[in-house]
Amino acid sequence: MTFNAAVQRRLTIFAFLLVPVTFLVVLNIYPVLQLFWISLTDFNSINWRRAEFVGLRNFIDLFTFDRDLLVPMTRSLYYLGGSVVQLILATWFAVVLNQKLPGSRMFRTILFIPFVLNAVAAGLIFKNFLELNGAANDILQLFFGEDFKVTWLDSSKPYSNLSLAAASVWRYLGFNLVVTFGALQAIPQDQYDAARLEGANQWQQFWRITFPSIRLVLLLQFMLSLVGSLEVFEVPMLITRGAGETSTFAITMIETGFQNRRAGTAAAMAVLMLAVVVIVFIITRLINSSRTAMKEPL
């Protein structure tokens, strides 16, 4: 049996797409559709047979009866603040390491290691570092005396979120660094040579050449950070178990769905988070496209 070229081409495309599309449907699209479905039921996270359709009740409850479940969303601001600091630091490191200084490759690797580190291991390192009898206080006691102790992770105080955001910065800095560094590599060197001939200083070179060239990459990373700060989970979960003030929206969602067996409400929370992420995404795209539209001349 023979096929003509067109059929062969289609078969090839089909064969190549079969596996990824199957994965996409089974592992992505189906669970998301199921999530939407669960958010419209009172499923108790165990027994499908007793789940009943309740319409939009879970969503209405989220803004009325259950509005306390939304409070942890505000804690994302700590992580958003952290990720801005992280992005600035990463850009700074990337620019410095791009100067081809001796040992810059080594520093790059060192800064990247936390990102490839297993999430649980990174969490445990910071738990051991920040806990009351941990390394941070031990080091500070060398300077301030035996009695010096700070409860960095006191979950009854909002400031514990700063400690957790710091742990998050440490962990994800390397990712930003490598992405920004890659963008820097793509800037043609002759632009800098020309600018130096014209007498531009380091800051002018950064602001007029480097920054405009990596702006899109930075914006993309900021967007990812924004989404990431809404979804913070493993750092507080591993370090303080999401106690009190350190609970985040994702942790509350898990507790609601599995500990309190309210899968319908938890799914509604997940859908809400998805909606927020999509809105953030659209806004960022709008800003981005308007900026590109008025592309400023050099």
Binding site: S155, S156, A243, G244, S247, Q259, N260, R261, R262
Partner: peptide, 17 residues
């Protein structure tokens, strides 16, 4: 489940408030 007053985590967060 609905009130969230459910088990040890709730007690922890209450006495920690």
């Amino acid at each position: 489940n609905t009130s969230g007053w459910n088990g040890g985590n709730a007690i922890r967060d209450l006495v920690n408030a």
